[in-house]
Amino acid sequence: MNEKEIMSELNNSTKQKEKWNTSIDNVVLILKNTNSKEIKAKSLWLLGEMGLQNSSQIQDHIQIIASFLNDKEPKLRAKAVNALGRIGRTNHLLVMPYWDDMMDMKNDESSDVRMCFIWACENIATNSPDLYSNYMDIFLELISDKNDRVRIEAPEMFRVIGKRKPKYVEPYLDKLQWFADNDLHRVVRIHSAGAVRVTKKALEATKNINE
């Protein structure tokens, strides 16, 4: 098949979720055998979505997905970390062998990769927030990133964690409030304020349960 036909096949697979549990191997085969950046990117994204729904079937293929964390193409690094985040949302144990490499993406030269790193962490933190108990400083630093899209997304990690494990965000409430009151970017202010609001609500709920 030519590139256009392969992309059409991937697009069709995207729509046929009921067949994902049996089509993972085919997508992996496409990923391994193409030289096209666009097809690789689409394959990585699709494997992440498939892995979210079928974590047991994706297990044997995570290593090849993770190998793209070191690819020279920023787009493929971004798609790889995002895919691992989606898989890790369902079963964080599957991505733990690549945890350090994933966390290193916070320093990637590409802002798209740094943003996808935050998205991946938000996905994993949705069901496994305890993994980030000692990593919240990273996301505070990213609120001051040089790229606005990264800055906009970073406070959302505090919202995700604050809703589930507010004690991890509580030490950052004053700093988040400063961003909510003073940041020059309107959406950064909105997202920071949302993180503060959600965390305080969760802290209050916890306090009421304990009383």
Score class of each variant (00 low, 15 high):
4 K>V: 12
5 E>G: 02
7 M>G: 06
12 N>T: 12
21 N>A: 15
24 I>S: 07
25 D>F: 06
28 V>L: 08
30 I>R: 06
31 L>N: 11
33 N>M: 03
38 E>T: 10
40 K>V: 04
46 L>N: 06
49 E>H: 15
51 G>R: 04
51 G>T: 03
54 N>E: 05
55 S>M: 04
57 Q>P: 02
65 I>E: 09
67 S>L: 06
68 F>Y: 15
73 E>N: 12
73 E>V: 07
76 L>P: 08
77 R>L: 05
79 K>R: 13
82 N>M: 13
83 A>N: 10
93 L>D: 13
100 D>T: 11
107 N>A: 05
107 N>T: 12
107 N>Q: 10
108 D>I: 00
108 D>Y: 00
108 D>Q: 00
111 S>C: 10
120 A>I: 00
122 E>R: 09
130 D>G: 04
133 S>T: 13
134 N>I: 02
135 Y>R: 14
138 I>Q: 09
143 I>F: 08
145 D>H: 00
147 N>K: 12
153 E>N: 07
157 M>K: 02
158 F>P: 01
159 R>E: 15
160 V>A: 09
161 I>N: 06
162 G>D: 04
162 G>H: 00
168 Y>E: 02
174 D>V: 10
177 Q>L: 06
178 W>M: 09
183 D>Q: 03
190 I>A: 13
194 G>D: 07
197 R>N: 14
199 T>C: 12
200 K>D: 10
201 K>M: 06
202 A>T: 03
204 E>W: 07
204 E>L: 14
209 I>P: 01
211 E>C: 07
